[in-house]
Amino acid sequence: MSSATETLSNFKEATLSILSTRHPWSEFLSFSTLSLPSSFSEATTRVGINLTRFLFNYTFIFLFILLISLVYHPLAIVLLLIAFAGWYFLFFSRDSDEPLSLFNVVAVDDRVVVVALVVFSLFVVWVSGVWVNVVVSVLVAAGIVCLHGALKRTDVGGLDDYESPYGPMLATDTAGPYAPV
């Protein structure tokens, strides 16, 4: 199989995987499933569970906020799309157990790829002069994600199937050593 065919196949598989984990916006935006958490630990547990469950929705919200903040900077949008493509093709779309191979000759360590991509992404943000827009977009998106994640109840819509990100430490159905905490 040629390299281009493999790339297209990997792209198709990744896209189908992402689309299979998305949840309908009606479920995501349902006001009937919103309530205030009773404690800070419940809020953080809700955020962790909802982040796992609605990752596609949260990612879409983040990218939409970033796009809106860059609407008057078309060069920045093009450069960031190139950076996102680099992240996707060099890091996210490949199998994690096989090393990246440049021109099928030299195997490159994951750390080298990540450092190069981070440096390139920061360079793109610096050259285009939109670092303030990006930082504000990230902060606004993080605030929206945390607020929605904390308010979205996890006892409805099949959310009980997800484990607490804290493991048995905060589980309510076991009487482990941390139960009184």
Rank of each mutant, 00 (worst) to 15 (best):
I61T: 05
L16D: 04
D161I: 13
L117Q: 00
R22P: 14
A76W: 04
S20W: 03
S26F: 05
Y72I: 12
Y72C: 05
V134M: 15
S3H: 01
E163C: 01
T154D: 14
L63E: 12
F123I: 03
W126K: 13
T21S: 01
W87N: 05
A4N: 03
N10C: 11
W126T: 14
V112K: 15
T7L: 02
V119H: 02
A142E: 07
A171Q: 02
F11Y: 12
G158S: 10
G48V: 07
V125M: 01
I77D: 07
F84E: 02
A142W: 06
N57K: 08
V124N: 11
A171D: 05
L63V: 00
P177Y: 14
T174K: 07
R46E: 09
V136I: 10
T5W: 07
L51S: 01
L122F: 15
D109F: 04
Y178M: 00
V125T: 15
S128C: 09
T52L: 01
G157R: 09
V132E: 09
R111I: 08
V118N: 11
E27V: 08
T52G: 01
K12I: 08
F91I: 00
R53A: 07
S69Q: 10
F92H: 00
N104F: 10
R53V: 02
R22Q: 10
R22G: 00
G48Y: 07
N10S: 10
V132P: 13
E98K: 07
L34D: 11
V140R: 00
I65R: 03
S3D: 07
R22I: 06
L36S: 04
S69H: 13
V125W: 13
A107F: 10
H23E: 08
F91P: 02
A14T: 05
S96Q: 09
N133C: 15
A150D: 12
Y178S: 09
W126P: 07
V145A: 03
S137D: 07
I77A: 14
F62G: 06
L36K: 10
A14M: 05
L66V: 09
E98W: 07
F84P: 04
L34R: 10
V132A: 08
V115S: 08
F91Y: 00
T52R: 13
L139N: 14
T44V: 09
L100N: 00
L151F: 07
W87C: 07
F91T: 07
S39H: 04
S137I: 00
N133L: 10
V130M: 11
R94Y: 07
S93C: 00
P168Q: 11
V124H: 00
A141K: 04
P180C: 01
D95E: 13
A141L: 04
L36N: 11
G167A: 12
S26L: 14
L80S: 01
F28V: 03
L159K: 12
L8E: 09
L16S: 06
S2M: 09
A107T: 06
S41E: 11
Y162K: 12
Y178T: 13
L122T: 09
